[in-house]
Design a protein around this nucleic acid. Structure first.
Lengths: 158, 158
DNA sequence: CTCCATGACTTGAAGCGTCAAGTAAAGTGG
DNA sequence: CCACTTTACTTGACGCTTCAAGTCATGGAG
């Protein structure tokens, strides 16, 4: 924080406004497609996808929370819903009773398999295709820098 | 949409994952600072800021909705809350009874004035400072391209 | 061995956003 | 000038996220 408010320059303001619009509209587009085509939110998709890529399609809740960039509480609620829908099951870690393991059921796996292509197509259409190859690399670097600054702890450093 | 799912390459995936993290963590950081320091959400700040920059500190609801990148419904709810807090007042447009004019009260103006410096400082800290001058320009271009693709109508083209 | 601190969740209430209706004013065709 | 459509919102219900407790299992200190 500076003593002087230090207002944004025109260039900075343009970038900032573009980013704010992005922050509102991209999630809408992603959630919209998944909700329409698969009846799930983007975060639910991330959770299912995270599970599907874990060894044994099983993973600890806390690890899944980091993988999907969400709080443990949020994840707990979401997994409850996914469990009711029959896509995930929970059980206590046999080795350490504090951990809870989430595992993807066969129905959950099928759901991911049937949902993924449409989702990837949307990501391509909205994010990848509009950008040049150079911009894709720039986006990765910019995203990482801002994310690091916004979440200093990182929830997974060490 | 393609026939083939056409999976993402490594570079594309890296950029995509970086963007997904950004989408989650940046709003958290922005909302967090404003909530802690001023007791308002980022969207409420945008609405107040939009009003404060309008001529006569007054603007139509529909124009304010576009300015702040929100739906009319969302704006209506938010303005109701801001009205209860005494920062905004609503009245019907004398010229055309369908429009509603939102106007910033003096208390609302004071709120913006006292909140802005801390918010700008956070934006600087989290978004502007971590980037080079070139990256700031890149961010603007990338943001615009993705936003255009995600929101084809644009809610304000023509 | 017991008590307490810590870690890993789960739960419930409260607040916000979205969607689907509903309302009211202005424009438009006959 | 009257019905009908369009435009600009407002409202209510529902679902999801967050926040603050609360629970249960482990690991240590004495």
């Amino acid at each position: 924080m500076d003593d002087q408010p230090q207002w944004l320059t025109d260039e900075e303001m343009e970038a900032w406004l573009a980013l704010v619009s992005l922050l509102i509209k991209l999630p809408q587009a992603l959630d919209g497609q998944l909700q329409r085509d698969a009846g799930i939110s983007h975060f639910e998709y991330q959770v299912l996808a995270g599970l599907s890529m874990s060894p044994g399609r099983t993973i600890r809740m806390s690890e899944l929370a980091q993988l999907s960039d969400g709080s443990l509480s949020r994840l707990s609620h979401v997994v409850s819903r996914l469990e009711k829908r029959g896509w995930v099951r929970r059980c206590t870690d046999p080795g350490d009773g504090r951990y809870t393991l989430a595992m993807l059921t066969d129905e959950g796996w099928d759901k991911v398999v049937e949902t993924a292509p449409g989702h990837v197509a949307t990501v391509r259409e909205v994010v990848i295709n509009p950008l040049t190859k150079a911009q894709i690399r720039q986006l990765r670097d910019i995203g990482r820098r801002i994310t690091d600054a916004a979440d200093p702890g990182g929830t997974c450093p060490r």
